[in-house]
Amino acid sequence: MQMKLFIPNLLANDEAGFWFPPQGSTVAENVDSVYFFILYVCTFFFVLIVGLMVLFMIKYRHRPGVEAEVTPTHNLPLELSWSVIPTLITIVMFWVGFTSYLDMRTPPSSSYEIDVVAKKWVWAFKYPNGWIDSELHVPKGENVTLTMASDDVLHSLWIPAFRTKMDVVPGRYTQLWFNATIANEKGFELKCAEYCGQKHSVMITKAIVHETRGDFDKWLKIASDIHKNKTPVEAGEYFYKTRGCIQCHSLDGVPKNGPSFKGLFGKERKFTDGSSVIADANYIRSSILEPQSKVVVGFRPIMPTFKGQLTDQDITAIVAFIKSQK
């Protein structure tokens, strides 16, 4: 952009300018040019006003024997000119700000979708494969749309390097999109900008930009392969929390839509068809894959099947988790 000429090179260093963090997204350059355009206009007017003020202060300071001169008390053309000229300038400012804003706020039709949940005082980023991470990972050069919701109070997701920010409001979804232009494995700062209580100032995480889509996919595959990073019980707990088990199965012994997992393993189960079985690994496996085939007395047959959604390894982890709920 030609406006880049305005950026004061003297003050800028390699990574970041005097004013701004590095330009990490497609909109950043635009925002910065608008900023510097306004900055130069403002500097001009500031120098004009203060310059005149100082000039008058010196030139017309009170001196003995010199009276104030009587000058006209109004001058319509003069006054109109300093009403109209600033008006025209602000119209230009509005226009450049408005057009860039529309670019920033209109999510592109095709983009990589990530769901964000903010709560006191952590961020959770949910990727399309269901993996939830506390850091934001995105590929470089690809449109990414964040759909955000809050669990408690207002938060605001801000990535200074991307020059983009949006409040996260409980009770509704807000959206934010960007297209990262610099790969950064260490990550850009991602901050909460709306006051949210005690740990507001540490509700900070990283926005990591991967060089290519391939790198990103590789990261996601490794990260979401939870059996590598976790014990089976931990992995089972992860599935329990993220795959919806938690909605119907409690851990405290109180049945909800389905039986509680507390003390379930090894107990005798009675079914509506009159048969019964001891709850072992095989029973749990078949309950997950074919839940309607045997329904425990006192519950309705409402559980969906998870066939094809959970691998054998996942189910083993869930079994281990249920086993641990004594």
Binding site: V27, N30, V31, V34, Y35, I38, L39, V41, C42, F45, F46, I49, V50, M53, T90, M93, F94, V96, G97, F98, S100, Y101, M104, S156, W158, P160, R163, T164, K165, A193, E194
Partner: peptide, 24 residues
């Protein structure tokens, strides 16, 4: 002097594109 700075910096915040970055 101060009002000149205060008033002129308001223009950055009134401009939509820059306010998104500068808000809060």
């Amino acid at each position: 002097f101060i009002f000149a700075i205060g008033g002129l910096t308001g223009l950055f915040l009134a401009t939509l594109a820059t306010d998104v970055h500068l808000h809060d």
